[in-house]
Structures are given as structure tokens and as C-alpha cells.
Design a protein around this nucleic acid. Structure first.
Length: 400
DNA sequence: CGTGATGATTGTAT
DNA sequence: ATACAATCATCACG
């Protein structure tokens, strides 16, 4: 980290070299003479000076004092330090240090730049933001994420229970994440100021360029941000697990209530000619059934495709519901049970026709009244199934 | 436990 | 963006 070795001749710097930089583990030398190996490791300039034995003596003394500073009490140390700073040899020593610094400075220049702003970290940040973990406040973000994941709007009372469970878990993760993040940030700034203070202190006895301080701060921040990345990563994982656990509706699928299917089927069969509910109709149905709009859409999607695939199988069901709507229609005279944009007359007509056809045997044949009574072409017309169009046989379905 | 029913998801076409 | 078609995963029933 810090290039002290040339001066002290002390080999391996310990892990805490930063804090104690200069004299780690030097107590053994504290009371000893200037180390003989000091010479071998090379200060050629001083070594060769024949008339410099006097100043060498001084340097030795100074080093001695530096090394014993840690063994003394603080007050003592401060006094010694002051003495050192006032020593007449100090400027000379300092200039030597500067020289060394200049030489070794080259080696640390090259690993200076590069700050690629890790794309993975950006992705993690974005995801945490999207999940409402890293967002500004609870509630809004999480709720938005949930509703976006499940549907595009209407919350149903059915799933609100799970949602609250999900939200509580999410806020748990959220709070843990934030406390940890804060801890890291605090530790980072504490450590940074600590290092800065040390460097500032050291700058009195050794040359410390602002650039160097900057670099040191950068290193510290990088280290801490890599830790933060890990935190973010594990938080993301936790959120993903939570999501798959709570929001993957496939996992705990519940059949809709009898009444809900009733309502949906009623709508479907009474709009058999055009079973594509508008947004408002979907909303209404969703409200009636206590499900979400997207669930209504799913239901109609499934129903259409399954009805089309095997009309015969649904014939009985169709008759039942047609009868129902017909009954309602007769009760309400000629006003349709569910007002819709398509002509009301057409489906009420088909409903009455169902009553007649209900008793008669109708194998898989497509009922003529559906085709005949409707304005537009049959939505089942665009059939791609090879044999589904004419299910002459009974209800046994053998697709695939 | 096997099987059909059913709600949800995914991939593709329009 | 919506619908369709295929598929998945679970439920419900025998």
C-alpha cells in the first residue's frame, strides 16, 4: 500500500499497515542499535559518504525515535513528534522521502483510471428500484410492483390477503436492506475519514499528495461498493424467491367460485356470437365475480379456445345457460340482462332458439341458430384445427 | 394415483 | 396491445 519499505528496511507490512504505516511490529528494534541489515538493503548514497558518519548518526537517532513512538504514551509521543518536526535534519529527511516517493510514484500511476460503472450493478439497482426495495418510500413502489405483476388494475379481495402477506415480507426485506446499506455507508465514511486523518497526519512526516489521498479514497469506496453489490445481489435473490413464492399464481391456483363461473358463463353464452367483452364489461364482470380483469380476460381466452376446440362438449352447458338467459329475458320482457353494444335482439333470439333445441338431439353439430342469428361471421370460423370443425362424434375429445 | 378440468403463462401472429 | 394456441401446474374427483 504505502511505500515505506525503502526507508525502514522492514519487509512484510502487516494487514493494518495503513493505520500503523511505517513501523508495524518494530518493538523488537526499539532499544537496539541501528540494524546492520539496513545497510545491505541499500542506501547507497548515504552508505558511501565517508564524511557523513555524523549525519548518519543523526538519522539513526531519528529513526530510533520514530520507531519507539508507539511504545510510548500519547503525550510522550506527541512531544517526541514535535521534537522530530523541529529537528534540524527533518527537512533533509523529508526531501529524501520526497525523492523516493517520486521514484516509486511511477508504479502506482498506471492503475489509476478505469471506472466502468459495472453494468451488473446498474441492473441490480434498477431491479431493486422496480421492486420497490430501493425506492423512496414503502407502499407505493411495492404495490405498483405487485399490481403490475398480477394484473393491470382491480385488486380482488381474494388476493389482497396474499398481497398484504407479500407486502409485509417485502418491507421486511426492504428494511433489512436499508439498515445494512446504511451501516455500510456509515462504515465507509467513517473509515474514509479515519484514513484521511491518518494521511493528513502522516503528511507532516512524509509526502502525501492530494492525488494519493484521492486514490486511497477511491480504493476504499470501491471496496465498500463491492460489498454493497453483494448485498444488493442477495436482496434481489430474496425478492425473486419471494415473488415466485407469492406471486406465481400457478403455484396455488384456486378455482373460481361457483357463482363466478356462473356469471362468466352466462355472459359467454349470451354473447356467444361475439364473446369479446369490452373493457367496461370486463370490469363489471370482474367486480361481480370478485376476480381481477386479467383473470376475466384469461377466462374468456380459455373459454373461447376450448369452446371452439370442441363445441359438442359444451353444448349441454350452452343450452343450460341459454335457457337461463332466456328465462331472465322473458322475466324482464325484452330488456336484455346485460346491456351491451351488440344488438340485443340477436342474442335474445338465439336464447329462445336454444330452448327449442335443448330437447332435441344435437351431437357435435354447430347449432345453426348461432350462425344464422348473428351479424358478423362466426368467431369460430377462423379455425386452424384439422378436425375440430366437424365433431360429428360424441363428446369424446381426441385432440393430439 | 390417474385423469380430466381449469386457471395461468408463454410464444406467436395480427 | 390483443387474441390465439400450446403448454404448464394445480385442483377435484373417481
Amino acid at each position: 500500500m504505502l511505500q515505506q519499505q525503502p526507508l525502514t528496511g522492514n519487509g512484510p507490512s502487516s494487514g493494518r499497515g495503513l493505520a500503523m504505516s511505517g513501523h508495524p511490529g518494530m518493538h523488537a528494534l526499539g532499544s537496539a542499535h541501528p540494524p546492520p541489515q539496513h545497510r545491505s538493503d541499500g542506501d547507497p548514497g548515504l552508505d558511501g559518504a565517508e564524511n557523513g558518519h555524523e549525519s548518519r548518526r543523526d538519522i539513526g537517532d531519528i529513526l530510533q525515535q520514530i520507531m519507539t513512538i508507539t511504545d510510548q504514551s500519547l503525550d510522550e509521543a506527541q512531544a517526541k513528534k514535535h521534537a522530530l518536526n523541529c529537528h534540524r535534519m527533518k527537512p533533509a529527511l523529508f526531501s529524501v522521502l520526497c525523492e523516493i516517493k517520486e521514484k516509486t510514484g511511477l508504479s502506482m500511476r498506471n492503475n489509476q483510471e478505469e471506472e466502468p460503472q459495472d453494468p451488473q450493478l446498474v441492473r441490480l439497482d434498477n431491479m431493486l428500484l422496480a421492486e420497490g426495495v430501493a425506492g423512496p418510500e414503502k407502499g407505493g413502489g411495492a404495490a405498483a410492483a405487485v399490481s403490475a405483476a398480477t394484473s393491470s388494475g382491480g385488486m380482488s379481495p381474494d388476493s389482497s390477503l396474499e398481497h398484504s402477506d407479500y407486502k409485509s415480507k417485502l418491507s421486511q426485506i426492504r428494511s433489512i436492506y436499508h439498515t445494512e446499506l446504511e451501516k455500510y455507508e456509515q462504515a465507509c465514511s467513517e473509515f474514509t475519514t479515519h484514513v484521511m486523518n491518518l494521511l493528513r497526519e502522516q503528511s507532516r512526516t512524509r509526502p502525501v499528495s492530494p492525488r494519493e489521498i484521492e486514490r486511497m479514497v477511491g480504493i476504499i469506496h470501491r471496496k465498500f461498493s463491492s460489498i454493497q453489490t453483494q448485498l444488493k445481489q442477495s436482496t434481489c435473490e430474496a425478492v425473486m424467491i419471494l415473488r415466485s413464492r407469492f406471486l406465481d399464481a400457478r403455484r396455488k391456483r384456486r378455482n373460481f367460485s361457483k357463482q363466478a363461473t356462473e356469471v362468466l358463463n352466462e355472459y359467454f353464452y349470451s354473447h356467444l356470437s361475439n364473446p369479446y367483452p369490452s373493457e367496461e364489461a370486463k370490469e363489471e364482470l370482474a367486480k361481480q365475480c370478485g376476480i381481477t380483469i386479467s383473470q376475466v380476460s384469461n377466462w374468456f381466452g380459455n373459454k373461447r379456445i376450448r369452446y371452439k376446440k370442441n363445441i359438442g362438449k359444451f353444448q349441454e352447458e350452452a343450452n343450460i345457460y341459454a335457457m337461463k338467459t332466456a328465462l331472465v329475458a322473458t322475466q324482464n320482457d325484452d330488456s336484455p340482462p346485460t346491456p351491451n353494444s351488440t344488438g340485443s335482439g340477436s342474442f335474445s333470439l338465439s336464447g329462445s332458439a336454444d330452448l327449442f333445441l335443448g330437447g332435441s338431439q344435437m351431437n357435435g353439430e354447430q347449432p345453426g341458430y348461432i350462425m344464422g342469428g348473428q351479424t358478423n361471421g362466426s368467431w369460430t370460423g377462423r379455425n386452424t384445427s384439422p378436425h375440430g370443425a366437424s365433431p360429428r362424434s360424441d363428446g369424446s375429445d381426441n385432440s393430439e
